[in-house]
Structures are given as C-alpha cells and as structure tokens.
Nucleic acid binder design. Structure first.
Lengths: 202, 202
DNA sequence: TCGAAAACTTTACCCGGGGTATAGTAAAAA
DNA sequence: TTTTTACTATACCCCGGGTAAAGTTTTCGA
C-alpha cells in the first residue's frame, strides 16, 4: 500500500522526468512542475529540499529502473540461447525494438541531460550519472568477455571499448535523432552496432 | 582590418562558446559573459538582440568553422592517398589525433548542447543545428559511397547509416567522456569506428 | 581635422523563477 | 480519536533575462 505522500512524490518525479527530457534541467521550472501536478510550492518543498534534491532523487530512480530494464532484457536473451554472442545480439535487438515502440515520443536520456548541465547541478548528481554509465559498461563488458572466451575477434578492440561503444551509440543516437527530429536513427544505429558485433565475431 | 565592433562581437562569441560548452545554454548568463568580456549589458545588446540571437550567431559561426575544419582534414587525407577507403581511415585517424590533443579541455559540442535545450532556444537555432548534422552526413556519405564502388562491404549497413554512425559516435563519445570525466573515451571510440570500417571493407 | 556614425556606458526598470519561512488546514494512519 | 502526514496560502528576498533610452567616447572616412 502506497501512501498519499509517496504518490504525490512519484507524480512530481514523473512530471519532472518528462519535462527535463524534453527541455533540459535548467529550463524546467518548479512552477511548471507544481502547475502540472496541481499542487502549490509549499507542497513541492515538503517533498524535496529544492531543485537539486529533486534531480538527485530523479536520477536515483532512473538508474534503478534502467538497471531493472536492462537486466530484464538480458534475462529474456538468456532464456532464448546459451551462446553469449547470440545473447548479446538478442539483447541489442530487443533494445532496438523497444526504441522502435517509443518512436512517437521524443528520444531522450537523463544521463545526457545532466551530463550537459553538470556544473549547474550538484556534485552528487554528477556522481550518480557517472555510476549509471559505469553500470552499463560492467553489464556489457561481462557479456563481451564471455564472447571473447568462445570466439576469436577479427579486430583488436577491447571488451571495455566495445561495451562503451554501445553506451556511446545509445547517447549519440539520441542526440542525432533529436537534432534531425528522426527517432528511427537511434533504432538504425543500434542495429548497426549489432551488425558490427556480428561481423567482429563471425 | 577588423573593426573594433567586430572584435568585441567575436570576443563575446568566444566567451559564450566556452561557457555554453561547459555549463549549457540556459546556465550561461549574459551577466557572466559581459563580466568576462569587460563590457556592460548595453554593450551586449548593441551587438545582439538577446540571448537567442547570440545562440544563432554562435551556431552559425560554429557550423562554418567545423565545415572548414572537416574539409581540411579530408584534404590532408586526399593528399596522402587516392583510395577512398584509406582516405576515410586517415580522416578518422586525424580526427582522433585532434581530440587527443584537446584532452586537457572538457570535451563538448554545441550540437549536443543546443539539441538538449532545443525548446528553450528558438526554432532557427534548432534548424541550423540540424543543418550541421546534415552537413556531416553528406560529407561522410559521399566518401563512403565511393568506397562501396571499389570494395564489397561485409554487412548490409547503408552508407547513410555508416555516415550517421560517425556523427553518433562523436556526439555519444563526448557525452560518455563527460559523464565519466575521461576524455580518452572519445578518442578510443573514434578509433573503434575506424576499426569497424576497416573490418567492413577488408 | 572635423563631423558623423559606431561602439559603447550608465541608469533604471519589469518580470519570472529559485528559494525561504511560517501559519493554518484537511486527510490519513495509529 | 488523536497525532502525524501532507499539504495550502501567503508573503517575501534575490538574481538573472530582457528592455529602454539618454549620454559619452572612439573610430573612421571624407
């Protein structure tokens, strides 16, 4: 049973996430959040110490949700096959299908948002953002090293670099998709990464 | 002979570029710009109609400089070899070396900055940012299609996708480098792209 | 060298947003 | 039913974006 306070808090985080992904952190005003949530400023400050505290809470939730999501996708991949290469390929495929389904919305990621406004936001937000990217690296790197144990790669790119490459393509794909106002670019880039991995261990 | 007005204007653009790359557009105040430039607010508004006008002028200059830079790197590559594949590989190598030299500075790109704060900035800025990414696509795609005429690619990724992949890796590499506070990631990702192209047409 | 633009300075003001504080109140939980 | 919880309402301060207009110096061309 979720308390009323938790409900409002989550609602504020939902609205904040939406607005920050669309307009950035600095451009997202507390006023616009409370207006959409239908509460007053006092209500906001009851739940959060200020804008930076909201950013931290939001990023914390974002990281946890993302970890849950990614491990869920990997689990589905592991159910389908025992081969680590196939698992990685399925994971990227599932991820691209997820992005395909979200085509209607503007693509965005809080990591990019906060990274680009890092000095405006506090040090704790910067740290948790870095932690989240490190989560990705570890998650992908483990799988890529298992692939290396069974297959001979056709280039000398390290597992860490290949892991970071997926993070890079996700973040960069979002930027380019936003810049050109074409969400399909992100999907295509994920499939291009998949194609690269496939070729590398073919 | 450059007039005094032009000099101050360029100085303001330089300072703005630096601050926006570091802190983002919204967090960059006119006050901090004029303080660093040593002029008053009136002086700023003599040169620019406002913050959005500054953003547009800045992005215009950024696009032109970048086009000059990239075509310069391609010219150097074309002087070294006639093979389009080798030219592409040399281009990416030169680009990575440039980034390596800039390791001391925080990596950044106005495309990412403005793309992530697009709704805060005006429509004209959004458009010129998209134009710049389209410049990149065209520049890379032409070269990649020439490669396709001489070599047989080992995967069915299109030239446009491979072209966008470089833009994606540049922008994403900057984000990940910033997030982890490690400029070497961008350099490594560029070399990983190079390695992919090399493998694709080997 | 002189006068007219150009390139500013100075001052003063409005508004919106972040942030603080505090008294009061309705609703939920114990 | 009483005590927290979860707010509302009001009122304020400061900063920064942005506007406006009058006055001053600098530059440059005729």
């Amino acid at each position: 049973m979720v308390s009323k306070g938790e409900e409002t808090r989550e609602k504020l985080l939902d609205i904040a996430e939406q607005q920050i992904l669309l307009n950035g952190f600095a451009a997202t005003s507390i006023d616009s959040l409370i207006k959409e949530a239908g509460i007053t400023k006092g209500g906001f400050f009851y739940h959060f110490d200020g804008k930076n505290d909201l950013a931290y809470a939001l990023m914390h939730r974002y990281r946890e949700r993302d970890a849950f999501l990614f491990s869920g996708l990997f689990n589905r991949a592991e159910e389908l096959t025992n081969d680590p290469l196939q698992q990685m390929l399925v994971f990227v495929k599932l991820l691209s299908e997820m992005m395909e389904d979200l085509k209607g919305l503007h693509p965005g990621c809080l990591v990019a948002s906060f990274t680009y406004e890092s000095h405006q936001v506090n040090e704790e937000v910067r740290k948790i953002t870095a932690d989240m990217v490190m989560d990705w690296r570890r998650l992908f790197e483990v799988k890529l090293e298992k692939i290396n144990a069974s297959y001979q790669p056709k280039a000398d790119t390290t597992s860490a670099e290949l892991a970071d490459m997926l993070s890079t393509i996700i973040e960069g794909g979002i930027i380019v998709s936003r810049a050109l106002n074409d969400p399909s670019i992100l999907v295509k880039q994920l499939l291009a990464y998949r194609s690269y991995i496939s070729l590398l261990y073919a």
